[in-house]
Design a protein around this nucleic acid. Structure first.
Length: 491
RNA sequence: GGUUGCGUGGCCGAGUGGCUAGGCACAGGUCUGCAAAACCUGCUACGGCGGUUCGAUUCCGUCCGCAACCUCCA
């Protein structure tokens, strides 16, 4: 059997996954800043790490999955100036900052639940860890890698880089960074433009501020992740995940903070990054209108798509692309995923109509090995999906050619689909479309009535009537499927 | 300009130093009163130019193009 390999951004190689304290695994993933609706790109990251979380659990690890909610400290720009995003939104909507936080936290949860992601083990917030953050800032000051300036505390990147390697995640060199840093206003408090704020002095009118040894203020954006990962996973832990765009500066700063505070230069063993989602080849961006909200996809209310696609279709579309590749979301991609998912579902349902016998046409062990080796290869879901389709082809072929399948193999096959498609990739197949919503029982009966009437007409060779019923039902979005065994319908 | 990465058939998307995924679309077929659906079959691609090699889409160089990051972003 194969071993799990993960691509580590630090080494830029696939490495064999060996947890620090097996069977325990600690995983920290950067969650959203809750100042506006999550967009579908955010969701991709959450879904990617959801699959990783699920697979690690499948392998038998006991995973503590920590995913934060950023509810303070994320500034509008990187000059470490400007407003806190949440405070700004609160002012704009004329509500409390915590109302902003609650509203978008709820929205975020709703969407990721629709996408069938598992809840993290711990979902800590920045405001809930103010004491720890203040202590952490003090810790960095004590170790000599931070300085106080005009009521704010800055991380001393130059001093840090004398001993440690600032930039090792993103491959940047401190000299290049210095040369390429643009002149920004408000850098006066910093010794060097590369320094970043870990505690920011609040203006008197600022709506979110806390007392600290350096005066009233609030924590810097990168700080919370260092603090909360350390608190819940320890000074050294296994996996840190997030979107590619967080490599620099966020993760670079986070790693520097960890190292400065604890002295351990390898606080994170494996850095994993998921890639961006694009729309027509461009990164989704609110400022250019190149984006839509997850709900707009599910409800079909964006002009950028031809119709609505269910959360499961969206999730399956994501599974057809590797998490480290950019994924282009388009109507065609979603349509292909929708049809592909139907094919998978049909194939799975068809298993039951295969002929049972002593011998078996299927090589269950081989199939299982192919599924597992796909996932072991840095969570290669597109290959796993391809393997699932291969099995579907085998099933269909077996039925057509009346090959035999043993009872055990039939159950094993179903179980493999359940494990890899549903439990690991989190794609639920609604295999019983005609009774998935009990609120429409009357409607279902009415449809069945129409189908029965049509069949009667068919039996009388009254094609005019039967075609009329079929056409009307089609217009209502109900599809009829005639076969030897009678007429099936689906919505 | 710097950093990281990418360029695969009509589209989406894996992967590999030789055996060359998969889905969608398309074409043909089976089934059907006709259709639809379903299923079967077919469709052999890796940006340009050099180099290494018995052999490169896969390694190296170079050129062109694209993206992300270097400004808030998952």
């Amino acid at each position: 059997m194969s071993e799990l390999k993960v691509y580590n951004t630090l080494s830029r190689e696939k490495e064999i996954f060996k947890p620090l304290n097996a069977p325990h695994v600690g995983m920290y993933v950067c969650g959203p800043t809750v100042y506006s609706d999550v967009h579908i790109g955010n969701c991709r990251t959450i879904v990617s790490f959801d699959v990783i979380f699920r697979y690690l659990q499948y392998l038998g690890y006991s995973v503590r999955y920590v995913r934060n909610i950023t509810d303070v400290g994320h500034l509008e720009n990187d000059a470490d100036e400007g407003e806190d995003k949440i405070a700004k939104k609160a002012k704009l909507d004329n509500i409390e900052p915590m109302e902003v936080v609650q509203k978008y936290t709820n929205g975020f949860h709703e969407v990721v639940e629709l996408l069938n992601t598992l809840k993290p083990s711990i979902e800590p917030t920045a405001t809930g860890h103010m004491v720890e953050q203040i202590e952490y800032v003090q810790g960095i000051i004590n170790s000599g890698y931070a300085y106080v300036s005009n009521g704010s505390v800055y991380f001393d990147v130059e001093k840090y880089s004398e001993k440690y390697n600032y930039g090792e995640i993103s491959g940047r060199k401190i000299e290049d960074l210095k040369n390429n840093t643009r002149d920004l206003k408000g850098q006066g408090e910093k010794k060097c433009p590369l320094d970043f704020v870990i505690w920011k002095k609040a203006e008197p009118k600022h709506t979110m501020q806390w007392n600290s040894p350096w005066g009233k203020g609030f924590p810097g954006w990168h700080l919370e992740c260092s603090v909360m990962s350390t608190k819940y996973l320890g000074e050294e832990f296994d996996i840190h995940g997030g979107g590619m765009d967080l490599k620099f500066p966020h993760h670079e700063c986070e790693l520097a903070q960890n190292t400065a505070c604890s002295g351990h230069s390898h606080s994170v063993k494996y850095w994993l990054h998921s890639n961006m989602l694009t729309l027509n080849g461009e990164k989704m961006s609110k400022s250019t209108g190149q984006f839509f909200l997850p709900k707009q996809i599910f409800e079909g209310t964006t002009e950028l798509l031809e119709k609505a696609y269910s959360p499961m279709v969206v999730r399956f579309a994501m599974m057809q692309c590797h998490y480290r590749s950019t994924m282009d979301l388009s109507n065609d991609a979603l349509l292909a995923a929708e049809k592909g998912l139907t094919r998978l579902k049909n194939g799975l349902e068809a298993i039951d109509s295969s002929k049972e016998g002593e011998e078996s046409f299927f090589d269950i062990n081989g199939i299982e090995a192919s599924f597992k080796s796909a996932m072991d290869d840095d969570f290669n879901t597109p290959v796993l999906v391809a393997n699932l389709f291969d099995v579907v082809k085998q099933i269909n072929l077996a039925i057509k050619e009346e090959k035999l399948i043993s009872k055990n193999d039939r159950e094993a096959l179903k179980s493999l689909f359940d494990v890899y498609l549903t439990q690991i990739m989190g794609v639920e197949l609604n295999t019983n479309a005609q009774s998935d919503s009990d609120s429409n029982l009357v409607e279902d009966d009415l449809i069945q009535l129409a189908v029965d009437v049509r069949n009667q007409a068919k039996n009388n060779k009254d094609w005019e009537t039967s075609d009329l019923i079929r056409d009307k039902l089609t217009k209502l979005g109900i599809q009829l499927k005639d076969s030897k065994d009678g007429t099936q319908w689906s919505k």
